[in-house]
């Protein structure tokens, strides 16, 4: 939703003219149209309600047009305005008319309208500038309307995201609880997983357009574990932009792989190393692949049953790539590879 250009007169609403006598309507219409203002002319009470329903930006009425029927039709329109709306109404009075009384009366029956009174004879420049000013005020009112609509939309989206996060946290809690053998282990694992979720949330929030690169996800995951002067986890690959969900999933997967490597894998020994790489194929449709490879750690054995980490990796990478990952308990170190269409994970840069 972009704000309308205030100098773009085509963004302005049209003017509805109520001037039943002589050639007033023709004259007013021509005058306003000469200044690029769109005009509709109401020919009488019969078409007034329909014309009001097309939401004119400004109403211009001569005093003598304001019959009881017209007053009531306009009053009904004014009453039914949405909260953001205060339609400007320009009334052309005569020198002879009881102006104070008319103004008081119109204020009473047309509340929440912006009244502008001119006494005839009005010079064209006065009237045109008055109507233009009223149309611009109307444009501002519509901006407010758009902002209100946007806020409603944002609140809905916020609620949706909060619910999603709570659902994610509940699932992390339930699954961590299930796998834990002690309260200490539970606390450490739960804290770690929530931390990974929080970190990627911040990274995505601060990123332009809620996209995050694979390198950023790798850095924020490995950063806390990188010892000074010694990069035991290397990461490399081309610039690939991930959308929010793919970035979050990758961060949580890398967190599981890293903590597993620290507890049981290559990073549990000083000489152990991990290489995390990703690639994008040249041929269309482009394929995105990731590879996690541990070496120089303790001898690896296939665990008797898969724990949270492995199970989560399988489920998450299958969802992210659209096909199952290969997780191999290779004797030299754990390997995890996954591949799938780039279009599934790619966020627009």
């Amino acid at each position: 939703m972009t704000a309308p250009d205030p100098d773009d007169l085509s963004a302005l609403d049209h003017v509805l003219v109520l001037a039943p006598y002589r050639k007033d309507a023709t004259f007013l219409g021509r005058l306003l149209e000469e200044h690029d203002i769109r005009v509709e002319i109401s020919t009488g009470i019969d078409d007034l309600a329909d014309r009001l329903a097309t939401l004119p930006g400004v109403l211009v009425a001569t005093h003598e047009a304001l019959t009881p029927h017209v007053l009531e039709a306009v009053a009904s329109h004014v009453r039914s305005q949405p909260a953001w709306s205060e339609i400007p109404i320009v009334v052309l009075l005569d020198r002879a008319s009881p102006n104070i009384r008319v103004r008081a009366e119109l204020s009473r029956i047309w509340p929440r309208a912006r009244h502008l009174f001119y006494q005839r004879p009005v010079t064209p420049v006065e009237l045109v500038s008055g109507v233009q000013s009223a149309l611009l005020a109307r444009l501002r009112q519509r901006d407010v309307r758009d902002h209100i609509a946007r806020e409603v939309e944002l609140r809905r989206e916020l609620n949706h995201r909060v619910k999603n996060i709570l659902a994610s946290v509940t699932s992390i809690f339930a699954m961590t609880h299930r796998g834990a053998t002690s309260l200490e282990e539970f606390a450490e694992d739960f804290r770690g997983r929530l931390g990974a979720l929080a970190n990627v949330h911040s990274a995505v929030f601060h990123a332009v357009g809620e996209n995050v690169t694979v390198q950023e996800v790798a850095d924020l995951t490995f950063g806390p574990y990188r010892l000074t002067g010694e990069d035991r986890i290397s990461s490399s690959g081309p610039a690939v932009m991930l959308h929010r969900e793919a970035g979050t999933t990758l961060a949580l997967c890398l967190h599981e792989l890293t903590t597993n490597a620290i507890k049981y894998g290559a990073l549990s020994k000083p000489e152990g190393r991990v290489r995390f790489e990703w690639r994008v194929s040249d041929e269309e449709p482009r394929e995105f692949s990731i590879s996690w490879c541990e070496r120089d750690g303790p001898a690896v054995e296939d665990p008797a049953h898969a724990g949270y980490g492995t199970r989560y990796l399988r489920a998450a990478l299958t969802g992210m790539f659209g096909q199952k990952p290969v997780i191999a308990f290779h004797p030299e170190g754990l390997r995890c590879e996954a591949r799938g269409p780039l279009s599934r994970v790619n966020g627009n840069p």
Partner: peptide, 12 residues
């Protein structure tokens, strides 16, 4: 379901 954490939970 598009949230892998929830898929994982539901599977269990």
């Amino acid at each position: 379901e598009d949230n892998p954490l929830i898929v994982f939970h539901i599977e269990q």
